[in-house]
Computed example of a mutant assay.
Amino acid sequence: MAGKAKPKKHTAKEIAGKVAAATTNKGGGKAGLADRLGGAAGHAKFKCPSCGIQSPSIKSAEMHWDSKHPKLPFKPEDWSDMHAVHGGVTTQGVAVKGSSKEKTKHELAKSQSGQQKLKEIEQQKAMAKFQ
């Protein structure tokens, strides 16, 4: 018998939180901090030519320009695309969501691409036996 106001089973929200915590690499330390900030480019795409502040979209860039630089005309082509400057990579490595664990045979068997991967693994094992 459970205590007062304590659920007997796990809630869907609690399980989803545990899954998210298990599959999201928080990446502590300086490398993790740099990666969470978005790598070299940062998560924001556009950089203001006047003050250097970054904006995620051209619409928010225009709002920034109207509030901070009202005397100058807004020209979207003057704003630098930071994602293009840094090769299109904003985040890489430790803070990217996802799990690094390998899928089991059972998990691979569920999808068609996984079944192809299983066949490749089996062929590699067979080739290793003959060598």
Score class of each variant (00 low, 15 high):
residue 54 Q to M: 10
residue 102 E to C: 10
residue 89 V to G: 05
residue 34 A to Y: 02
residue 18 K to E: 15
residue 59 K to E: 09
residue 117 K to D: 14
residue 49 P to V: 02
residue 109 A to R: 04
residue 73 P to V: 09
residue 94 V to C: 08
residue 31 A to P: 10
residue 8 K to S: 08
residue 92 Q to V: 14
residue 37 L to T: 01
residue 54 Q to V: 13
residue 76 P to H: 00
residue 111 S to V: 11
residue 102 E to R: 01
residue 125 K to Q: 14
residue 89 V to A: 04
residue 34 A to V: 10
residue 50 S to Y: 03
residue 18 K to N: 09
residue 2 A to G: 02
residue 69 H to L: 05
residue 53 I to L: 04
residue 76 P to R: 04
residue 22 A to S: 13
residue 12 A to Y: 12
residue 52 G to S: 13
residue 16 A to Q: 15
residue 76 P to M: 04
residue 26 K to E: 12
residue 99 S to R: 09
residue 7 P to K: 12
residue 125 K to N: 15
residue 76 P to S: 09
residue 35 D to G: 15
residue 33 L to G: 15
residue 37 L to Q: 06
residue 107 E to G: 06
residue 108 L to N: 00
residue 6 K to E: 11
residue 120 E to N: 09
residue 61 A to F: 08
residue 61 A to Q: 00
residue 48 C to I: 15
residue 13 K to T: 08
residue 92 Q to S: 12
residue 102 E to T: 04
residue 43 H to L: 08
residue 91 T to F: 01
residue 47 K to A: 11
residue 51 C to L: 05
residue 131 Q to Y: 08
residue 81 D to M: 01
residue 94 V to E: 09
residue 44 A to L: 03
residue 114 G to T: 02
residue 107 E to W: 01
residue 7 P to S: 12
residue 130 F to R: 14
residue 2 A to F: 10
